[in-house]
Design a protein around this nucleic acid. Sequence first.
DNA 1: GTCTATAGGGAGATAGAC
DNA 2: GTCTATCTCCCTATAGAC
Lengths: 195, 195
Amino acid sequence: MARTSGSHSQITGPRLRAAALRLFARHGYAAVSMRQIAAEVGVQAGALYNYIPDKQGLLADLMRSHLEELLAAWDLEPKGTGPLDALEAFTRFHIRFHLERPDAVFIAYMELRNLDPRNFAEIEALRKRYETGLEDILRAGRAAGVFDLPDTKLATLAVIAMLTGVTTWYRPGGRLSAERVAALYWEMVRKAVGA
Amino acid sequence: MARTSGSHSQITGPRLRAAALRLFARHGYAAVSMRQIAAEVGVQAGALYNYIPDKQGLLADLMRSHLEELLAAWDLEPKGTGPLDALEAFTRFHIRFHLERPDAVFIAYMELRNLDPRNFAEIEALRKRYETGLEDILRAGRAAGVFDLPDTKLATLAVIAMLTGVTTWYRPGGRLSAERVAALYWEMVRKAVGA
DNA sequence: GTCTATAGGGAGATAGAC
DNA sequence: GTCTATCTCCCTATAGAC
């Protein structure tokens, strides 16, 4: 990207976040320098500090934005009627949302240990809120006799781990479309919860 | 740890590996310095290079050892008769083995991107071999009509992701024993594959 | 808002004494 | 086999000119 001079406040901010997201996902937060990010944005390293307080704040921002977007999108998702519909909606939503944002997902799962304690608590609370959304569905379905689950909490964690795992191997243009992947996972989830 | 002088070739090597395993798992490969590792071992940084070629070689060694131990242990595991027994054996083995080595597991999954291409190819091949062990079980069970699986390859990845996820939340002394956790996961896996 | 320059510190790795 | 000392390089973050 050509280096320019002058003011670009509308442009540099988003570009900074996009570059950091890509580089952190590819190489890891600790392995990426502010100079690398700046080079990708097309400015000098010092200029980045007009947009972020420090490197740690940048990481926390990326993770917070991702999780807030996730929660907002799930809130807006149609959930049908009853726990079985809701679980199918969750499964398809989770896979679609995560496959559309591989870099942000990767960072949100891998860089938790690089958050300082204050940021970690905040991010962890957001992650937990999303998890609770699934847990509520499973508990309701169990109470209604629709699901057969000996341990709702464990089932919640097992289902999320299984679904999120899709991001480690799925590549667009591969053997299966995202739609087909979601359908296959839904069938496995449905059976796993005894529905 | 008290600093001593003299020769400790029998002691320092294992201590170096143990310290690196712990620190890499806790803070990440890129965030840990050779000086930190040396301090934990109780020697100066330069002394570490009597045991490792460089930092990258240390990481590759830790991951290779872990995966070779995993493959050897699975080879020795009794697998019963038939695909259903074998799948149960795999499920219980995978959970037990992974819960006993949380640091090594964490590193093997999180630090792949910090391997240089040569080491990555080698480590990835070992991981793939383990994955194939499960895939063979699922394919055999499907052929025998014991499992109901629309896509064996995807089921393999889904099951491994679900099982490995246990390492992100399980803590010894928590609500569930490792035995109980394995039993609950086995029930979910069994249902998910339609057995 | 971005630049250049730099403060102040830490990184990986090696050399040679003991 | 470990030490001290050091090479060379890179890091985050800030200061002040434009």
